[in-house]
Structures are given as C-alpha cells and as structure tokens.
Design a protein around this nucleic acid. Structure first.
Length: 351
DNA sequence: CGTCTTTGACCCGCGC
DNA sequence: GCGCGGGTCAAAGACG
C-alpha cells in the first residue's frame, strides 16, 4: 500500500497509548461514549481530552469525517488508536471507522441495516461506538489502483453489455468471457479521473468474522495480511451490478476485534429491509407488536435535531446531519457508502 | 442444480 | 528491473 498507511498508523500513539483506554468497552459502548461524553465528560471521553475540540465535537458528523472539513487528517484515527488495525485497514488512511462492539456469534447487524440509494441504513451492531475516523472520499491521492479499479468497473459494465450482445449474436459465452478477461488487462482509458468510493470501516468485537448486515455477500478472495496471523477476506455484494465490496479481517492487535471495511454504495435495497418493508405494507403491526428489528430500524433512522442533542447529550452519540428519516427528510446528500452505513448510527440512545 | 467458498494464479502499483 | 504486497479472477469443490 501507500506510505499513507504508515502515516495514519503512526497516529496510533497519539492519544490512546494505553490500550485500556481504547473505546472498546465491551457490551457497554454506544456512539455516545466518544462523542456525547466528550461534552459531558467521563469515560472514554477522557481519552479524547487533548483532541482538537474542533476535530471532535459532539456535533461532529460522519459527513465531516468524510469530507475532511472538520477533522484534521488522521486526527480521530489517532484518537481511537488505529493501531488496533493493521495499517492497511485504512488503505491510504482515509476512511471512516466506526466501532461497533461486542457482537457475539448469532448476533447480527441485519436489524439495523438497510441500503443506500436513498433508503440508506447500515450495518451496525446494537452496541456501537464510534471509535475512529478519517476521511477518504475527499482526497484523490490514492494509488492508481483505485482509479484503475473504478475505470475497470466502468469498462466492465460496457463490456458486460458487449458480451451480452456477443452472446445474442451467437458467440459462445465462454469466448466472450475470455475476451472480457483479455480486455481487463489492456490499458484503461486515459485522462479519466474517477471519484473514489468512500470507505467506511467499523470494528466489532465478535466471535464471527463475517457479520450479518442484511445484505448478501459473495466471498471472492482471501489474502494473508502482512504482519498479521489473520487473513483478510474480500466480499462483494451479490446483487446484480451492485458495486459494494467489503473486507473483513481481524485486528492483529486484538484478535477479538473484527474490522469490516465497506466500500461503495449499494444500488439496491437491502433484502432485510425489503422484507421488513413488505411486512409493513402487508400487515402493519401496531408499534408494540412491531418486531424489534423493525423498531430498531426505525429508531435508527429518526432525524436528530441539534436541540435534541443538547437536551440529551448524554444519550445521543453522534450528530449525522443528512442522515435523517427518509419520511421527513427526503433530501439526503450523497455520501456514497457512508449513506448506507451511517444512518444506523444516527441515533442511538441508551435507556 | 444453483449458490457459495476456497485457493492458487495473476495483475498492478510501489519502493528499493 | 525486481520483489513485495494488495486486490481480483476464476476453476474446482462443497453444500443445501
């Protein structure tokens, strides 16, 4: 990877030199542990003291993380001890990282997940806490690989059409596929700058590597990670034409921690969400009878007004402007993947 | 039989 | 130029 890995990696000694101070507080954490408490003091917030108050504001949003407007590069990453991650987890160090802790086997993220493209919700465990963040989307200085991949994807779509046409024309599908494979090795169109997909990572204390998040994934690769005994798995969303990928690996520092990195934006509805929505349409249950999953889903999508934060700063964790209930706030800025992932974090309060 | 995982091969960018 | 490492491909096998 690029040298930026190292850059971010080095941040890890910034604020959390003592691992025990890290945001993981098994089974207790929520997003507020790092943001609201920063306002109210105590707990993990203590560890945030010394952070640039602008960088870690209780009103800081993931949006800000992504666009880099409010966070100095790597600041939060340092705050949350990126050393929990293999340096490469961050790619170039521009990634939004959220920690959702304490997922045991059997737990899944599905109730809290949704999908992008407008109805975005996201994978998150019920016990979530923001752990670290840095932006990725705004910076266009990654290695050429990403550009290449994006170009490749674009070209692939054209080629798929081409292949379909060839098939229609009677050319053997296998041959067409081979043609495509050859094309993949030829130089890409020049001069095309493609925007990178934002990546969004979260850490989960989990016994299982691949957490259920409501989407269907196909594993397409696994690689040994340098300096880590744990392999990294590569998954792709199985939905047609959905570009979303995710990488799953265990922290080499803390094997109980699973790091999931999402990349891209779902172009379809989450199967889980679709099911829930269908159930709602067919037989809308009274609130009391609604499934926990669905209620959680709705809860997670409630809009949050700043005033609410101020009034309930002990409960509300992270302000995420833009991630508001689709019912009330149809205008959601396009934050790519983040849009898919973050709404689940937009409101989480403890009883 | 369709779907998914496994796994070795391959490609590419980067640093030396 | 070469080696390394990350990421992807795709054939083969497993599974339900």
């Amino acid at each position: 990877m690029s040298g930026e890995d190292g850059e971010l990696y080095h941040h890890d000694h910034g604020f959390f030199q003592d691992r025990d101070e890290f945001a993981f507080q098994d089974e207790r954490d929520d997003l507020s542990s790092l943001f609201a408490q920063n306002q109210g003091g105590g707990g993990a917030a203590n560890s945030l003291q010394g952070l640039d108050p602008y960088a870690v504001s209780p009103f800081l949003s993931f949006d800000d993380f992504l666009d880099g407007s409010a966070v100095r590069h790597g600041t939060l990453a340092s705050a949350f001890d990126a050393s929990y991650l293999h340096p490469d987890v961050f790619g170039n160090g521009e990634i939004t990282l959220v920690d959702s802790t304490a997922v045991k086997s059997g737990n899944d993220l599905a109730p809290l997940t949704g999908c992008g493209g407008g109805d975005g919700t996201s994978p998150v465990s019920p016990n979530s806490s923001v752990s670290s963040s840095s932006t990725e989307a705004a910076v266009e200085d990654d290695s050429g690989r990403r550009k290449k991949d994006q170009l490749k994807q674009e070209v692939d779509e054209e080629e798929e059409e081409e292949i379909k046409q060839l098939k229609r024309q009677g050319k053997a599908g296998e041959e067409a596929e081979r043609d495509k494979a050859k094309k993949q090795n030829k130089p890409r169109k020049k001069g095309e700058k493609r925007q990178r997909e934002p990546r969004f990572a979260f850490m989960t204390k989990s016994e299982v590597d691949h957490l259920e998040d409501g989407y269907r994934w196909r594993k397409y690769g696994q690689k040994a990670v340098k300096n880590s005994p744990f392999p990294r798995s590569y998954y792709r969303c199985t939905s047609l034409k959905c570009p979303v990928k995710k990488r799953v690996e265990r922290s080499y520092q803390d094997p109980t921690v699973v790091i999931t990195t999402y990349e891209g934006k779902h172009t379809h509805q989450s199967p889980a969400t679709a099911r829930a929505s269908a159930q709602q349409l067919l037989a809308p249950p009274p609130p009391a009878a609604a499934s926990t999953s669905f209620r959680n889903h709705l809860l997670m999508q409630q809009p949050r007004a700043p005033s609410a934060i101020q009034q309930h700063n002990a409960n509300v964790s992270v302000n995420l402007p833009g991630f508001q209930s689709p019912l009330q706030q149809p205008q959601v800025a396009d934050y790519g993947l983040l849009q898919d992932i973050v709404p689940s974090f937009t409101q989480y309060s403890e009883p």
